[in-house]
Amino acid sequence: MFKNENTKNVKNTETIIGESVMVEGEFNGRGNIIIEGKLNGNIKTDGHILIGDKAEIKANIESGSAFISGKVSGNIKVNSSIDIAKSASIKGDIEAKSIAVEAGSRINGNIKMNGEAETETTEIEETPEEEADKLV
């Protein structure tokens, strides 16, 4: 599942922030975004955001969907699904319609599933695979 997600929408990507680049400020993108470098500020797009395992993000993120395998310090809000890989480290709240978490990922923050009244607080560290599946 996660391997496939990692290459999702790459062909239609309009913005790529490479490893050797640092972006600072309010970034409102159009379409799909790949981040392999550093970003400080806020990032917003209607499309898909892929945050690679070497990426370091200190920003609030809003997008249509997301795949996270790097470090994120900030809140993440996606309209549809978010996939969190084992190499991901997230400090912040996550809001999405569906969430997939791979065993080994680190999440410190609240997780809110869109459309549900209750807010669930979850901290996952070194989550066994079976338990991670239950979160989906």
């Binding site: 680049v21 400020g25 309010e26 970034f27």
Partner: peptide, 12 residues
């Protein structure tokens, strides 16, 4: 660009 800045590492 708009409200953000881009800086690149040496060698680019």
């Amino acid at each position: 660009i708009d409200n953000f800045e881009i800086k690149a590492a040496p060698g680019n």
